[in-house]
Amino acid sequence: MLAAIHITNLYKQFWPSTVDGITTGAIYALVALGYTLVYGVLRLINFAHSEVFMLGTVGTLVGATVVGLGPNTATRTGLALVGTFLVCLVFAMAFSGGVAVVLERVAYRPLRKRGSSKLAALISAIGASLFLQELFGQDKLFAIGHWRFKMLGRDDHYIHNLINPTKIFTFFQGSIISVDKVVVVVAAVIMMIALDRFIATSRLGRGIRAVAQDPETATLMGVNIDRVVSLTFLLGGLMAGAAGMLYMVKIQQTSFDVGFILGIKAFTAAVLGGIGNLRGALVGGFALGLIEIYGAAVFGAQWLNVVAFVALVVVLMFRPTGILGEALMKARA
């Protein structure tokens, strides 16, 4: 059966859809930054980035355990809530950033050093993605020395008491602005601005831009490429970690394969905005979040992903390098 088109639904659900589209889009954008950073510097699609995001959700769970948040603990309030939030965020970013750096060392650098083709790195990325997913899908207890590690297994893991989704106010069409949505969007925007400033103004950021523009010349000018690449992966990982934490605030559950769909969406967002372009990832993330939810309102929820990808194809037909184009990083350098 073809989709029934209900344009009127878009009017009826416009404001709630916009609020949710922006919230989802913020998470897409944060993850998309990782794809776009790595692509900008190495011309490589880091398909394992979806698992870097998954590690962020795992880090959130670990952080919550560290501050004593159990399944039956009441949600914290006031300063304790801020503390809990920050600890979880730090753990999430540390997990994701750490695994992204290790990933680059283990899966990409050896290939790069041997001058292998871009395709080899791409396959390595897919392999690393599957490896991490299956590793965290294990039910076994891992032991390193006296440390014991419990993986996620195949079950879902929940955390319902991180932040209460208390209603702040309601506006048009009963759209609810709640604490969790505000936290997600505000935290994401702060992260993006911080990253943008870091790349634009710091010495390390200048190194990243230099390598993105012309690796050979950058080396001749004394830029340490290995360090720049590591830093790029670290920054992408930190953003994915923050996204993992915010995902846990909003969706409240994770599993070993949580990165799969979200990773594809974030990659789409990066391409939509113009891959290799930081602000493009931002624009792409929010655009994708909004397009898919408006599309779902008109055609029905099962067409959400179809609408998202049709929009991508249409945009690429008219702007082959995405909404903002690929070259912004060069232009701004």
């Binding site: 709630p16 589209g21 919230t23 559950q253 309102a297 029905g300 929820a301 099962q302 959400l304």
Partner: peptide, 14 residues
Amino acid sequence: GSIDLSHNYPATVN
């Protein structure tokens, strides 16, 4: 409509 396995269902909810 039908939901997917993404665990994020704002469109359906709205």
